[in-house]
Each structure stands twice: as structure tokens, then as C-alpha cells.
Simulated assay, not measured.
Amino acid sequence: MILQKISICNAKKVYESLGCDKGGISILSKKSSLHTILIKNMHVGAANILKQDSLSIGADLAVPTGVITAKEKYVDGILIATTKQLEVLSRKELAQPFGLKEFAKNLKEFIPSKKYLTKIMGVLNANEDSFFQNSRFNEEDASFRINKMIEDGACIIDIGAVSSRPGSKAIPWEEELKRAKPIIDVIYKEKLFEKAKFSLDSYEPKVLEYALENGFSIVNDITGLANDEVCKVASKYNAQVVIMHMQKDPTIMQENPVYEDLIQEIDDFFKERIKKAKSFGIEDIVLDVGIGFGKTLEHNLKLIKNLEHFKHFGYELLMGASRKSMIDKIIETPTEQRLPGTLAIHLESINYGASIIRCHDVKEHYQAIKVQEAINTQEIL
């Protein structure tokens, strides 16, 4: 007998290649995915019960010393469990005291739903002050640039007419529409929206309405639906909405950003904005943690490593770190030379749960993602 340690990225594919029974593949897949969940402010009684219940099914709960003697009334803990074990605990704890009934209901949110295929969102800017010069274009070469991106592998094109780089200032909506309108008109006239989906990177209701009226179907809002009027417009056209997290606004967002609990604060933000979106009838939602929008390098790296946490909402996750300054903070690199760093971030993000990659370099991303998919789905003999 030969023993070999393997890393399973696509459990279902591995068990299918092994020739397992179809009914057993689903069960085995759930046993192969391990989750680590932080639980805060847990009653010590709940901690002791959950510890024993976790151990009884093969999971575990890490708790501080002194829990068994109830040294502190409330404690934090870390639950380590497979998908299958999460399902068992979400039922088992419904009958337990000390707040575990509510815990069981909330735990269901962390049980992974369907897996999404990776999509590439190509970036094109209609403003002269975007941070990456090669992403800028005008209506004269719009058709060529868009068709080239689609040919290279983009299934979404994100058009922007206002810079949101650190320190940038907002412009009147009339100026934004003046910049975006000729390109939107080209997309509509040539029916390019039949070849790919189009997104407008904007938070101006009137500009968004013009785009949605003319072939666009996605609202990419860096303010995360702060404006009720944006919600109304998105709902009116049944648009998909990208809710992005940003601390403060672009003019000051990078001036010493501070969080008490980065992951929890962004989680709370998404929870509140998802609730708001649904109140306006918006159901098609994508979440974006906002790399570089009010975050330090440490914050950005932590978000990438913990991206999977936000999958519990059940929506697709977008990652947009294309050529951003976080790469320069790791290794000094000018914007035009940051493609390798961008690919490293985006490929890792896919492994942590991102399914939409917003990037400037579509062809290179398409190739890298296809190679990554081949590696991740490779049959292990």
C-alpha cells in the first residue's frame, strides 16, 4: 500500500474520479471542507455545551482556559468543523439553552451554498485621471477595445467615468454623464450588450439610469447603496448590484484607516446593506470587500485570507485588486509593472471564494485562471 497526502480543492471531482457511488459523493464532499468560525461573546454555559457536542461529532471548539470552571461569564471561541458537522450542529443546538438556539439558526448562514464559475470583469475608464493609463479610452476606440476584451475572455465589462483613486474628488453628475454617454451610446447602437454584460462604476442615480436604459445590467456602487435613489433605479431596471465596502470616501479614505474588528465590521456593513437592498426589491447582489478603499496593506491581506468568511451571505464575491498600490507596498513597483502581483492576488482570491475578478489585463487573467482551474480539478491517482 502507498500512502499519499493530498490537498482537495474540488472534492466532488476527486470522488467522481475515484468512482465513488453518486449518492455518496455529496456526503463525502461535505466531510472534506473544513471551516474555522470565530464565535464572540458566548455564554460560558453555551461554550461548555457546544464543546461537548462538537467533540461528539468529530468537530472541535477552541476556548480559553478556565471555561470548564466558568471563570468568565462570557468568552470567545473558535469552531472547527466540516460542512457536514456544521449541518449537524445547526440542528443539534436548537434544543440547547444559553443562546445556542439563536446560534444554531445563525450557523446555517455559514453552510456553503452553490459554487460559482469564475467570471472576468474587464475594466475600461472614460476619464483621464484613472490611476492606470492603459484602462483609459474614448468613444472613438470603444467598440474595438470592448470587442477585444470579450474576445480575450471577459464576460462583464465595467465602464467608469469618475476616478475613485485615493485623494480623488467627486464631479457633478452632469460631467460624469457627459463622459460616459458617448460610450454608452456606442454599446447600445452596436448591441454589444448581447455579447457581454455591462456594468457602470457609478453612484449617481441619473447616470446609472441612462446606462441601464441603454443596455447595461449591473450597478457597481463603491458607496454600497448609500443613496436610496440608486436603490430605486437599480430596482426599477431589475439590475444586479455590486455592494462594495469603503471606509469614509475617496478624498480621505487612506488617511490612517482604523478598525476595531475588520472582518466583523465589514460583515455588519454587508448585513445592513443587503437588508436595505432587499427592502427596495433588489435580489441580485454581489459583494466586494473593497481592497484599497479605506484599508492598509495589513487590512487588505487579512481580507484576502478571510474572503471565504463572507460566503455565508450566499452571494458571489468580487475581488478587484488590479494593479493597486498594495502591490507597491509589498515590493516597490510602478503601476504599469504590477501585473504579476495582480495575478497572485486574484488567483489566491479565487481559492478563497471570489468568483468575479475585476481586472485591466483580461487576456493574461483568462490564461492564468484556466491553468489554475486545470490544476484544481486535476484527478489525483
Rank of each mutant, 00 (worst) to 15 (best):
I68C: 03
L28C: 02
Y237E: 05
A170N: 13
I159V: 07
L307G: 03
N134I: 10
G215I: 05
N214H: 15
G353R: 00
Q264S: 13
F313A: 06
G24F: 14
A368W: 03
G19A: 09
V67D: 04
L297S: 08
E379T: 11
I25R: 02
I8H: 07
L347G: 05
G122Q: 09
Y15T: 04
L177F: 10
K302T: 15
I222E: 01
I375F: 08
V162I: 15
F137G: 01
K275A: 10
A70D: 13
T335S: 02
F313V: 08
F293R: 01
K370L: 14
S279V: 05
K189R: 12
H312C: 10
Q133F: 10
L262F: 02
I222F: 09
G353D: 03
D60H: 08
V362D: 01
V362I: 08
V219W: 02
K30C: 11
A95E: 14
V162C: 08
A196M: 01
A368G: 10
K40W: 10
K73L: 13
A344M: 07
E255C: 11
I330R: 02
K295G: 00
I285V: 09
I356T: 02
K51I: 07
D129L: 00
N147P: 02
N138K: 08
V75W: 01
I49G: 00
R91F: 10
F293K: 00
Y15F: 14
K248M: 05
S163M: 08
N134Q: 14
G45H: 09
F132I: 11
I150Q: 02
K101L: 06
Y352G: 01
I375V: 14
V242D: 02
M149P: 09
L100T: 06
M1T: 13
F280K: 02
T333L: 05
R145Q: 13
L262W: 01
D21I: 12
S202E: 07
E308K: 13
S7I: 15
I375H: 05
K73T: 12
I331F: 12
G294W: 00
N138W: 06
G224E: 05
H43P: 13
N227C: 06
Q378W: 14
T296F: 09
H245N: 08
I111Y: 01
K189I: 03
R145C: 07
Y188S: 11
K236D: 12
S135Y: 03
G160D: 11
K84V: 07
K206I: 13
M244V: 06
L38F: 15
L55M: 09
A142P: 01
A81H: 08
I282R: 05
I222A: 06
N125D: 04
E151P: 09
L55S: 05
R136N: 03
K108L: 11
K115G: 04
A234C: 07
Y210W: 00
E16Y: 11
Y366N: 15
K189S: 11
S355T: 06
F132T: 09
G23Q: 07
N256A: 15
L100Y: 05
A70H: 14
